[in-house]
Amino acid sequence: MTDFRDVLIDHLVDERAGWSMGCFGAVAEFHQDRGEYLEADAPTMFVRATSRGAIRLNAEAVGQIVPVAYETLGADPHRWSHGVALCLPQKDSAMNGRKVLTELGRDEEAVRSADRAAILFDLGLGLPQCDFCIRTADPDLLSLLRANAGRSLFEPGNPSSAAVLKAHPHRVALTRIGRIEVFQKIGGPDTGGASPPGPHTHLLPHLLKSRRTHSADTPIPKYHLPLGYLHPANPVTDGLGRDRAFDIDDHARFQALFERFARPDLPILRKAVLDGLARRAEPGQFPLQSDRFSRATVRITLRQQYRLAERFGGGSYLELVSRWRNVLDGAADMAATDEEAPARTGPGANDVHSSPPLAAAG
């Protein structure tokens, strides 16, 4: 997988790419701004840090990563999302699964040396492939957390969540492939109810209750788990989730990843759609797909071709793609999408906290 190491390095230095680690309902994200000052910059060692957050991939684990490129439908009919899930075999993915607040000691593996004297606490969410933690040197917060160690954050009357929300400690997502650290404030009352741009975390109680390891929209191979995600630049939305003019270069770059790392049948299906359009076949001649990922690939391919035709003056081709979309990209299948999937968050997404006990770590 030497070539995939190069993919990771190339995207680590691409300020438009984003990264996330965690589990369904508990995610830490790392994003950079163009020209942002770097406090750590060692891409060949898979390390990067700014004043707002940090990422480090475990160099020894990178060669074991099973990359899975995927695309997901956007709720808006002209959008789609994409990414590369960073997977390991299930037997190699397990973390500690602690279910109570637990002091772990000094975070000697922190990306920045200045953070290594601070104390790490596992929040005890019991996640299979991620230890979701906070890190602090605040004496008042340390005292309170130590007094409540061994209790579940879900326990009624536990003051830990409210104290964390007020103190804004660092959040640290630990996995077998690496870590993401978030230094910014927790999205909540002190940030106007929204996540700050750049590195941030999401802790969503209603998703945690599902006990799912990942979004149903991502075709993760059997007996594997996604531990993190690479989010390359999207050709139709910017880093804040706003519409942008279709960027054919960003589109082509991800299509190259999709060809190499997607579920093997999906690039073949994409080619079949393109061949059908090239032959000017009618949509009724194209076989309907029974698999949700196959249906999504057909629909996304048509959205992409529509944007390409719009951008480059498709004329009759645009009309042909529109006919295909009317038949194969209807709204009826939108229920198959996971709109709150952690792999589809981004720097412009808001934290959503539906109950106070877990709001503290968002």
Rank of each mutant, 00 (worst) to 15 (best):
E259K: 15
D291P: 12
P283Y: 10
D249T: 14
T301C: 12
D217V: 05
G188I: 06
L204H: 08
R212D: 15
R292M: 11
D291T: 11
G315P: 00
D243Y: 07
V321W: 04
T301M: 02
D250C: 03
K209M: 15
R244G: 06
F286M: 11
S316V: 07
D238A: 11
F254T: 02
A309Q: 15
I220Q: 10
F258L: 02
R270I: 06
Q304C: 14
D265V: 12
H214R: 04
F293I: 05
A233T: 02
R270V: 13
I268D: 12
I248M: 03
L204P: 00
D247K: 08
Q255L: 07
Q289W: 00
I186Q: 09
Q289V: 03
E259T: 15
L269W: 04
E319H: 08
H251G: 02
R295W: 02
L277R: 08
I268M: 08
G276A: 15
Q289K: 08
P267C: 09
R244N: 09
Y317K: 11
L207E: 15
G188L: 09
Q305H: 04
T213M: 09
D243C: 05
P197L: 11
I186G: 00
G239S: 08
R307A: 14
Q289L: 06
A278W: 00
L240V: 01
G314I: 14
Y306N: 15
R299N: 02
H224V: 01
Q285E: 12
R279C: 08
K222P: 01
D238W: 14
Y317R: 11
D217Q: 05
S294D: 08
L302T: 10
T191H: 13
D249I: 08
G315I: 03
Y223S: 05
D275C: 01
P226I: 07
T297I: 03
K271H: 08
D243F: 13
G188F: 07
G198N: 14
P197E: 04
I248Q: 10
F261W: 11
I268V: 10
Q305N: 09
P287S: 11
R299G: 06
H200A: 08
L277P: 03
F261A: 05
F246M: 09
G314E: 13
A296M: 07
Q255T: 06
H231N: 14
T213V: 14
I186A: 06
P189Y: 04
D243K: 14
T297V: 04
L274G: 04
H202A: 04
D265K: 15
A262V: 04
W324S: 03
L230Q: 03
L230I: 05
I268F: 05
P232Y: 01
P197S: 02
F258Q: 02
T237K: 04
A281P: 04
L225V: 06
G187M: 10
P189I: 10
R253S: 13
Q289M: 11
P283D: 02
S195H: 15
S215F: 06
L308R: 15
L227T: 00
D243Q: 07
P226K: 07
E259D: 15
R212E: 15
W324T: 00
G228K: 01
R253C: 08
A296H: 12
R323D: 05
H224I: 05
D249F: 12
R263W: 05
L257W: 00
P197I: 03
F293W: 12
H202L: 13
